[in-house]
């Protein structure tokens, strides 16, 4: 195993996420472009032209290269667990100048953001019993992240209450999160877990429905409801306000009903790095 080699893998992971979009997102945007007319169609045409240009020039799709967020799944038999944090740190440091990334980590009070500021990545850890390492990166812009919401509903609010608070969040956000958005919803757990579930759902492919029929139905009903708001691409009006809605669930306290809503801009940038026990890696 070569630490420098795997650090290179982290740089590739970030570069892939920043400069290209997953095919399912491009396909959904092309489909939306076909169905829209007028200004909405023009917005989607501009988006598609930009995706194309970014891939050709290897430049970040959006100048907001986001807050660096990593979902890490470690096999407990993976031999180099103690190296993982250093790989991410070193890879990110290299990516700042080679991708490059915009200095995007400020002190929340002083707002100081030096050009050499070290970005503090957000790390979510999970474990399984395997011997491999999987790292998903989700660099997320603040235009969409600022529109996230946590609602601690009462159990009696039920599905109608959940639907209403998602509708309220999307209509209040209007054009700000760069629609058409992908809406990630976490239901259950506790307050922070509901938001984490919502954010992690952004890694799912577009059109993948929840395994439970009632929830899958709620996802498709929400897609229709949110697209009927007429907010449209960039909030300038149109039929496509969301590209997808994903719901993730887990049990919660009998007295509570947490709903975490995370909006993602059309540029649902994410990529995956897989490292095997012998130190080989690949980026998707």
């Amino acid at each position: 195993m070569d630490d420098h080699d795997i650090t290179r893998g982290i740089v590739e992971l970030i570069r892939t996420a920043e400069t290209t979009l997953p095919q399912d997102v491009i396909t959904a945007l092309k489909h939306a472009h076909t169905s829209e007319t007028g200004i909405a169609k023009l917005q989607l045409a501009t988006i598609l032209a930009n995706i194309d240009l970014a891939a050709k020039t290897h430049r970040p799709i959006c100048q907001d290269t986001g807050i660096q967020t990593f979902f890490i799944t470690v096999g407990t038999h993976f031999p180099y667990i103690s190296h993982i944090q250093q790989w991410i740190h070193d890879g990110l440091t290299q990516a700042i100048t080679t991708v490059p990334l915009r200095p995007n980590a400020v002190n929340p009070i002083t707002r100081k953001n030096g050009d050499d500021a070290h970005p503090s990545p957000i790390l979510y850890w999970d474990f399984n019993t395997g011997d491999t390492l999987q790292i998903h990166t989700l660099p997320k812009g603040s235009g969409s992240e600022n529109m996230s919401a946590l609602k601690m509903l009462d159990p009696c609010d039920g599905i109608d209450g959940i639907t209403q608070c998602i509708l309220d969040t999307v209509t209040t956000a209007a054009g700000r999160p760069c629609p058409p958005t992908i809406v990630g919803v976490g239901i259950g757990g506790d307050a922070p877990t509901a938001l984490k579930l919502g954010k992690k759902s952004l890694l799912r492919p577009i059109g993948s429905r929840h395994a439970e029929k009632t929830i899958a139905r709620l996802e498709t009903d929400l897609i229709t409801l949110l697209n009927d708001t007429g907010i449209g691409p960039m909030g300038l009006g149109g039929k496509t306000t969301v590209l997808d809605v994903r719901i993730e669930m887990m049990p919660c306290h009998p007295a509570g009903l947490p709903v975490g809503i995370v909006l993602q801009c059309w540029a649902n940038r994410h990529a995956e790095l897989l490292v095997t026990a012998d130190g080989s890696w690949e980026v998707h």
Partner: peptide, 13 residues
């Protein structure tokens, strides 16, 4: 005037 959000490379060009 609204410029398409996220169209960073196009704008740079």
């Amino acid at each position: 005037l609204a410029y398409t959000g996220g169209a960073g490379v196009l704008a740079a060009e």
